[in-house]
Design a binder for these strands. Structure first.
Length: 870
RNA sequence: GGGCGCGUAGCUCAGUGGGAGAGCACUCGCCUUACAAGCGAGGGGUCGCAGGUUCGAAACCUGCCGCGCCCACCA
């Protein structure tokens, strides 16, 4: 076998390994398999742009889950795909067109959509390539896109079904309108920020009948159709039912009483503009008020007169100025901070607008979505997040699903010449031709409408496919808490509805957002954005993945930094070199492991530690505690295996013989198991090393399809762990002394060790001497320092020179103070009758042990001080 | 306005009823033939503040201070 280089070089390894995995077909899931199924559908990234570090993070978690299940013998499917991202993509292509001096209208609908498809072909390929670079073990044969023919048919099918069930309807409502994107938006596509506005008070009417209203949106007054006051407001009782003149117009409007008005705010009187404010719309409904639309879809005033053609922000000061001229400004405008909605895509201030749109009646669907979590069919991790989920599904408004865009699934409704409205099913012909006056609805559906079908549309629904039978419900949904409402809740609604009450996933594992090392959001303007490809190129995909997974505490945001990624890269290299050492020393994994009874204490110890690690990794994986999985494996690999087991093995291997033969076998086994455990998180380096270690070849010669390490409790060995712990303590204390005394580490020191038998580690004197770099006592040995390591163990060292007595004394005095404090604490607690009576026996015993340990420590320190004086 | 969460070492975070932890950073000493992307040793925290419950609180309860997020149609 070729010798491994001294440093791990990820680039070449990653490309080669990935190609071989794909070629061998190991990512492919077989729907006909007898194995239990495990399935994940990818949260489809938008075809706009490229994958950011947040995707890399999410994909790492999904890949780790999938790879582990695959090794555990599940038929594991991770289904890849992308989302057409309606508004985002259309905006992007429109911007491209703009650079050519064109608008979408210059191309026309068909040509424009063609252009978007063309763009998708280019952009989508880049995203898929990024997924390969990350090492994602996705089933490429099952890649899907929300605008695929099959998925479009699913959209069409469910639309028809909901329509027939009366759960989709068309209505004229106040909706959120983006005057830049020129489309309706759903409530959650609107982001609220606290903006500074100005509150002006305007006097309507004159004399006795005058009434003053306060508003931040003076320009809408042209569309006022009433003034509202609270029904019990003493100030205005006499005016209710009367009319006032609306300034700047020739209209008179009524004064109505409505509970909605807060008498304590402003003047207690509200102007009512049903066509441009959701509250006012409702007041209008209650009082049968007419609606006057005063702005067009771009936010430009349409009322004929001096303000016609002005933008809404030009109209506002113009109208205030005109009112002031008429002496109708009752009080100067004052700053007022209030929540204002913005388009989540382009940040333009949303204009509430009365218009005819399509809606999903959410009440029955949302109720089912809530119940599925409440009754435990779907588990949300971390559980706290379920509260947010309930808060949303229990208070959901109807969902506006029509968008005035061209890129998306077109609404399958046709309008006839005589006012007919026909929803056409997926296998039906349009009811008539355009020549006969029939036309299809111009609008397309909200992107999230098709996303909501993703867990079953990707598996072949509405057909009853074998994929659907095998892989639905999916096992777990891994996604960010930021799209709990956008996506998760809606998949629940549609999944339960379309799949006869069967939930789309059993578990929702929510993760946080990737942030920089100070917990700051990543943003281009702040310059702290990390490009996953950059890290993969410089540190490797495994290092990038490990850094991300290591920060993944459920539901918590994930801080990362380049320094930490360097640390992960170092960890990869550590594994590389540990395996390299093993191979240089003839470690192997073939043949059975010798019987436990035939093993040395050190072997039994590492196998016992390994068992704890396997059990812990399993436990943490089941809880989606990726950070803890990484932590456990990191410390086992670095501390236990590299710093101790390998070091303890060096003398044994050097000595050769039967002991060395056994050690080679056990070392090979430990690395084999470790590489398997790490493989889900760091697939590349573990596979490369596993192949080198085992000499495996051929398409199946990869760790990714080896059995997951089994938890074998019989290998747990407390005695061996205690014995090695004592060994470690002795070695560490001798090293401490050497370091404190400035004895050069490379310098061997003659020493005599006493008391190892009493400490139960007599058999390990050779190892202790080796690791602490002590020579055997020579003929010329003369003790010049005596170190008490434990109550029993003393080490007489020939330091070939004087030692720093004062420093060692100070050290010992410090130790003594700590031991005395410990002793006093333990005594105080044990002499407290309430404690001894009420505390669990195990705790009391623990304190007793601690007391004994403190006493032993004091004895040791006393002996050391005495030796120091001599 | 409503809801949720967080304040633990210089930084980022684990720990949630019985001896204060990790990574990185820091100090000292080392190229000890797997690895300087390394090895050994070490320093560092009245666990935001104040009360309470308990034999025992970083953890549970209450209040306060500070920070963050989500939801929301008060003009």
């Amino acid at each position: 076998m070729p010798a491994l280089p001294a440093q791990y070089q990820p680039g070449e390894v990653e490309q080669r390994r990935y190609e071989q995995w794909v070629a061998a077909g190991h990512f492919r899931a077989d729907a006909e398999s007898d194995k239990p199924s495990f399935s994940i559908v990818i949260p489809p990234p938008n075809v706009t742009g490229s994958l950011h570090i947040g995707h890399a993070f999410e994909h790492t978690l999904m890949d780790a889950l999938t790879r582990r299940r695959r090794m555990q013998g599940f038929e594991a499917l991770w289904l890849p795909g992308m989302d057409h991202a309606g508004i985002a993509t259309q905006n992007l292509v429109e911007r491209q067109l703009a650079t050519e001096g064109l608008s979408r209208h210059d191309l026309g609908r068909d040509k424009f959509v063609e252009r978007v498809w063309q763009w998708k072909a280019e952009s989508g390929g880049a995203i898929l390539d990024q997924m390969r670079r990350l090492g994602n073990s996705v089933d490429w044969d099952r890649e899907r896109f929300t605008m695929d023919e099959g998925l479009s048919r699913a959209v069409h099918t469910i639309f028809k079904r909901l329509y027939d069930d009366g759960l989709i309807y068309r209505a004229e409502r106040i909706i959120n309108w983006c005057p830049r994107c020129l489309t309706a938006l759903s409530d959650i596509e609107v982001e609220h920020t606290d903006d500074e506005g100005e509150l002006v008070s305007i006097r309507y009417g004159d004399g006795e009948n005058a009434i003053v209203v306060a508003t931040t949106r003076a320009e809408t007054m042209l569309g006022d159709t009433a003034v509202a006051v609270h029904p019990t407001d003493e100030r205005y009782l006499h005016l209710i039912g009367t009319e006032v003149e609306l300034p700047l117009t020739d209209r008179r409007i009524p004064i109505v009483a409505d509970e909605h008005v807060d008498p304590a705010f402003g003047t207690g009187a509200v102007k009512v503009t049903p066509a441009h404010d959701p509250n006012d719309f409702e007041i209008g409904q209650r009082h049968n008020l007419p609606s006057f639309t005063v702005m067009d879809e771009r936010g430009v005033i349409t009322v004929s007169g001096p303000f016609e053609g002005l933008d809404r922000y030009e109209a506002r000061p113009a109208i205030v100025a005109a009112l002031r001229e008429q002496g109708r400004i009752a009080s100067e405008k004052r700053p007022y901070v209030h929540a204002v909605g913005h388009c989540s895509r382009c940040k333009t201030t949303v204009e509430p607008r009365l218009s005819l749109q399509w809606f999903v009646k959410t009440a029955p669907l949302a109720a089912a979505a809530g119940d599925a979590v409440r009754d435990g069919r779907v588990r949300i991790e971390p559980a706290d997040m379920a509260k947010r989920y309930f808060a949303w599904v229990d208070n959901m408004h109807d969902w506006c699903i029509s968008r005035q865009l061209w890129w998306g699934h077109r609404i399958p409704v046709w309008y006839g010449p005589n006012g007919e409205v026909v929803c056409v099913g997926p296998d039906e012909e349009p009811p008539g031709s355009s020549a006969d006056g029939w036309r299809q609805d111009e609008d397309v559906l909200d992107t999230w409408f098709s996303s909501a079908l993703w867990p079953f549309s990707t598996l072949g629904w509405p057909d009853r496919t074998v994929d659907l039978a095998k892989f639905y419900p999916t096992s777990v949904l891994v996604t960010g808490y930021d799209i709990l409402f956008f996506w998760v809740a809606r998949m629940m609604m549609f999944g339960l509805y379309a799949m006869d009450g069967r939930q789309p996933f059993d578990v929702v594992a929510l993760h946080g957002m990737v942030r920089d090392q100070y917990g700051k959001k990543m943003s281009k303007s702040f310059g702290n954005v990390v490009d996953p490809l950059d890290w993969i190129g410089r540190f490797g995909a495994d290092a990038t993945r490990f850094t991300l997974a290591r920060g993944a505490n459920p539901g918590q945001d994930v801080p990362i930094s380049e320094e930490w990624c360097q640390g992960s890269r170092n960890f990869c290299n550590k594994l590389w070199n540990a395996t390299r050492f093993a191979l240089l020393n003839g470690a192997h994994v073939d043949g059975d492991l010798p019987d436990v009874d035939a093993l040395s204490t050190v072997d039994r110890w590492i196998l016992s530690r390994l068992q704890h690690v396997i059990a812990e990794v399993d436990r943490q994986f089941e809880a989606y505690e990726f950070a803890k999985v990484c932590d456990v494996l990191y410390h086992f690999a670095w501390d236990d295996v590299c710093d101790w087991y390998v070091e303890l093995s060096k003398p044994v291997l050097a000595a050769g013989g039967q002991a060395a033969a056994v050690r080679r076998r056990v070392l090979g086994h430990v690395l084999d198991q470790l590489l398997r455990l790490l493989h889900p998180v760091m697939p590349f380096v573990t596979d490369e090393l596993w192949i080198a270690l085992t000499g495996a070849g051929g398409p199946d010669g990869t760790v990714m399809i080896q059995p997951w390490p089994a938890d074998q409790p019989r290998l747990v060995n407390d005695a061996a762990e205690a014995e090695v712990a004592m060994l470690q303590r002795v070695v560490t204390e001798i090293r401490r002394f050497r370091s404190d005394q400035g004895l050069r580490p490379a310098q061997r020191v003659a020493a005599r060790i006493d008391g190892l038998a009493e400490a139960g580690v007599a058999a390990h004197e050779g190892l202790i001497r080796s690791l602490a770099r002590l020579d055997d006592p020579g003929a010329d040995f003369r003790a010049s320092a005596t170190l008490a390591v434990t109550a029993a163990v003393t080490v007489a060292l020939d330091t070939r020179g004087s030692i720093d007595v004062a420093a060692e004394r100070a050290r010992l005095e410090k130790d003594r103070a700590a031991a005395e404090k410990e002793l006093a604490q333990a005594r105080a607690r044990l002499s407290n009758p309430a404690f001894v009576e009420k505390a669990p026996e195990a705790v009391v015993n623990k304190i007793r042990d601690r007391l004994a340990a403190a006493e032993a420590d004091l004895a040791r320190i006393a002996a050391a001080l005495e030796a120091l004086s001599a």
